[in-house]
Design a protein around this nucleic acid. Structure first.
Lengths: 333, 333
DNA sequence: TTGAAAGCGCTAACAA
DNA sequence: TTGTTAGCGCTTTCAA
């Protein structure tokens, strides 16, 4: 049998309540008593049972993190920021993969709430109506990290995806590019359709370039999808002379596929990506990119969540972090 | 107030025990009763409280995962295997970063045990004596994933690192390479010193090549460390004509640094890495590599842990998965 | 500054 | 097949 608070109390000749106070750093304990209790705790090797504590106090100091794919570096870097700040505030993280699958997301959310997490961090692009409903009735506060809620009902931390994309595309236009391709994830996802694609369109318009549907590719967030995307683009009668990709693995797939075809980068083709994960340094040429402060997005999201969980005053539930651009070999400076 | 099992019982005119039976799929319930209870559950939106359940049953269906760095693709791919199998067996995962820091590892382990996890998966290379002690007295079973315990006290899943390294180095020798460099993480870590380096030495010996200390570089598991490692190696009077690196980011750093110096790969320099993460496809040329079944290592480790947690018979606590080699552009075939 | 005691929501004998 | 009841280990009033 494990040693419990009761064992400590008996051994130290105090009540459970006093032991509890000592363990929880309650100041209302005489120093002598505290020392006595602490000694017994060490001697017995007592370790508080967080489950019992959770049941009694209704706080588990655990937050649920819903992540589409942990092996995607974008999400992994967000997760690092989340984890660090969680640790700083003494929370633990239950990490659950959603695989971008709606049913699994709902199910995962339910399990998390059943485990009485104090809060939820959601990464992932699409928030279905049903998910939104569940979030609404969730007893635990929810924060989106690196994701947007166009209806602004949920707390979230991200960057201005429209402006970021627009500015990247504008740069291409300023460099004299005429056939700028846009490769993103599913356009059913609001962030892609309403923000990134919209930014792309606005930039084209302002540069006096016409919109060409065939330069828009709905792809997926992995390397192979990038290779396929390029194969599709290079079949065009008028090939693109620039590509903006919404994710780094995808971008490297595009870049490498083009290089393997003998395309000269950045002379004939400029490539820009969107996340500035460490992958952008690993390609040759290295990838120019929109800079999202990934670690910070995760960290700020978690910090925001801690405030929500402890009912602290929060002045802004939608945090837009600054973005920038980093130019490397895949674009002309 | 949340709806509890008691509310359901009252509303359905049965006892708590019956509700509990229905929720837990206990067959000893009359179908009519079951339906009645299920209806009330739906109607009230009852969701079992896993914390209370954990306290009463002494099982939390949660496992702790200690990971050095979630943003390292090697660990992330292991984690995916772990998570998938955990989900399959209805376990959740508390993910905790250790940052390869001994104190943090101990502290994280303690927190995890306080949360009454049913089991622990540990990734990370070095198991200090103190950590080993804690594992020994842990009430929850422990499995190492992608890590070795040379003393064979802990359950673990990995590959034969000695043979894998030996065979890769032998290949270099067979290709006529004479100056084969070995770049790994800290040689204080048993897996590097006793297995990988040992395999390297054995291969050299069998090939009749002499061991040269200056070709051994203790590095770190990231891109910049790889760049530095190459800078060191290229300063040698007699430069290496092949490199075996123990981690993929590291390998890409080496590869790119060499390429940037104008070294011809694979003609002048062959590079081989060890993990076959998806990163190996992203470099140009693509990296030849030892193939570790990363996802499987994670998956098998988790599966093994489920057995340990439910006291199932386990015939082999040390699982050595098969490895192979994948040759790509960074080596001559 | 301390203690007594009533839960927290559930499981698991045990009895019926 | 169902119900009763005693915990699980802790927090949290409330009273002293």
């Amino acid at each position: 049998m494990n040693v419990t608070i009761y064992d400590v109390a008996r051994e130290a000749n105090v009540s459970m309540a006093t032991v509890s106070r000592v363990v929880n750093g309650n100041p209302n304990v005489k120093p002598v008593t505290r020392k006595k209790v602490l000694d017994v705790i060490n001697q017995l090797g007592y370790r508080p049972n967080a489950v019992a504590r959770g049941l009694a106090s209704k706080r588990t100091t655990t937050v649920g993190v819903i992540i589409p794919d942990i092996s995607n570096v974008f999400y992994a870097e967000l997760a690092r920021g989340i984890e660090d700040i969680a640790t700083m505030y003494k929370y633990n993280i239950i990490l659950s993969s959603s695989d971008e699958n709606e049913d699994k997301e709902l199910q995962v959310l339910n399990t998390l709430l059943g485990k009485q997490v104090d809060g939820i961090i959601y990464m992932g692009e699409k928030i279905t109506d049903q998910l939104q409903e569940e979030f609404d009735r969730s007893p635990a506060p929810v924060v989106l990290a690196g994701a947007v809620d166009l209806e602004n009902k949920l707390a979230s931390v991200n960057i201005d995806y429209l402006e970021a994309t627009k500015s990247a595309v504008k740069r291409f236009a300023d460099n004299g590019r005429k056939r700028i391709a846009f490769v993103s994830g599913s356009l059913e996802e609001p962030v892609n359709r309403e923000l990134k694609l919209e930014g792309y369109k606005q930039a084209l318009k302002e540069a006096g370039l016409s919109f060409d549907e065939s330069l828009i590719v709905e792809s997926d967030y992995n390397y192979d999808a990038g290779v396929k995307a390029w194969q599709e683009l290079s079949k065009l009668a008028q090939k693109p002379d620039a590509v903006i990709a919404s994710e780094d693995e995808l971008a490297i797939g595009i870049l490498n596929a083009a290089l393997d075809e003998g395309v000269n980068v950045p002379e004939e083709l400029e490539v820009m990506t969107s996340n500035n994960t460490k992958l952008t340094l690993m390609s040759r040429p290295q990838l120019s990119t929109i800079v999202q402060p990934l670690y910070d997005i995760g960290a700020v999201a978690m910090r925001l969540l801690t405030k929500l969980m402890t009912n602290e005053e929060v002045d802004e539930r939608t945090v837009i972090l600054p973005h920038s651009e980093k130019l490397r070999g895949s674009t002309k400076q």
